[in-house]
Amino acid sequence: MRFLSFIEPILARLAGFIMVLLVLSLMIFLLARVVPGDPARMALGPSATQEQVAELRLEMGLDEPILTQYVAYMGRALQGDLGRSITSGRPVLSDIADFLPATLELVLVTVFLMVIIAIPLGVLTARHRDRWIDNSGRLFSLIGVTIPSFLFAIGLQLLAANFFPDWPILGRVDYRLSPPDGPTGLLLIDSIVHGRADVFLDALQHLAFPALALAMSGIGQVTRITRSAMIENQRKDHVLTLRSFGVPDRVIVFRYLLKLSSVAPLTIMGLEFASLIGNAFVVEMVFGWGGFASYGLTAILQKDLNALMAVVLISGLFFIVANLVIDVVLSVIDPRQRRRAAA
């Protein structure tokens, strides 16, 4: 029974998210179909004959009504067939399988950086409110929020070029090291599985700057939210009670306040995920990171409709999965969240 009460609200949110994904895919589908220019003509190039184009249009189902096309597309998508990319000529799904791990690795390390930098910084600034630590922490988070990630990325590259000439600023891993094959495609994990310390360290070096550039805006936001949540919760009655009982300050902060104050920043991090994915497009471009976002950018520029659809759907899925994970974490650390979600 206890387990059910825990899982039910999450299922309810999952259903909501699936609705969101459906509407989203319909929107993008409609949008992609009003693109000026014939996708079949784009795929075949200017030298193709009229008959070849007509044949491909028939094959792609472009002459059917849009809604029929959408239903057919979704039917195939559910069976794992996302169509063929016109730029790479391969099934979109295998393209994605190649490109996604690089982005997944980048995003996971970014989120890790966000959590280990922003939350302690938020706690620290709140505890030293209006002192120099607080002021410099607030300045730091303001800078994180105001500087676009492409400037951070370029700035970090400049820094490396001038002061650490040996630090890698392009790509995922040194081309001279042959990275181990599989099983996950995440270099950090694969290199551990295969016992390749050299690849692990090299991949970590390559990851540091892109992940930092990508994390900065989130760090700024999360630090701010953590700080204000800590300050607000310090004034709550039960905290005052603990304090009047003579519970040591450290225990209050780490046992009670931190847990209570991580609800707001975690929620914000879920929402931040949408812009995180967007900024990954920029950061991957600057650092030559051959990932999913680079793939998406090419798809958009080339009007590669199947690839574009897949990129949008998977970006949405990314957001949804991240938010579900956060919902689960929240309902573990804050029982009130379960009732809230159920309502």
Partner: peptide, 19 residues
């Protein structure tokens, strides 16, 4: 608004901007 929230704004703007 909930649907729009799940959409990475940059991806969306790029898609629209390219259409």
């Amino acid at each position: 608004t909930n649907v729009m929230l799940a959409m990475p704004p940059l991806v969306m703007a790029l898609a629209i901007g390219n259409v």
